[in-house]
């Protein structure tokens, strides 16, 4: 199945892309996607523990399962206001 990854702030800089499509196996979890990304984008390993996730603009935990055509956003703790 196909998912879209969006990255922001330090995560965007570590990955070097803002948005990307990935072909992944059915029912893959957020954690598994991040593990895959870490192999290609090693700087992500330095940001471990400070990652937040959202599927289709809704916060989720890293054990959440993804569905076809989902958008997974990965970003650091927020600092707006």
């Amino acid at each position: 199945m196909k998912i879209r990854i969006k990255t922001f702030a330090t995560i965007r800089e570590a990955c070097g892309f803002e948005e990307k499509e990935l072909i992944v196996s059915e029912g893959i979890s957020v954690k598994e996607v991040v593990q895959q990304l870490k192999k290609s984008y090693r700087q992500l390993n330095d940001l471990d523990g400070a990652l937040l996730f959202a599927i289709n603009e809704e916060y989720c935990h890293d054990d959440a399962a993804l569905s076809d055509d989902d958008t997974l956003a990965i970003f650091p703790p927020v600092s707006g206001g």
Partner: peptide, 10 residues
């Protein structure tokens, strides 16, 4: 807003 809105400051 400061706790949960996805906005980042540089």
């Amino acid at each position: 807003v400061k706790e949960r809105v996805p906005i980042w400051k540089r």
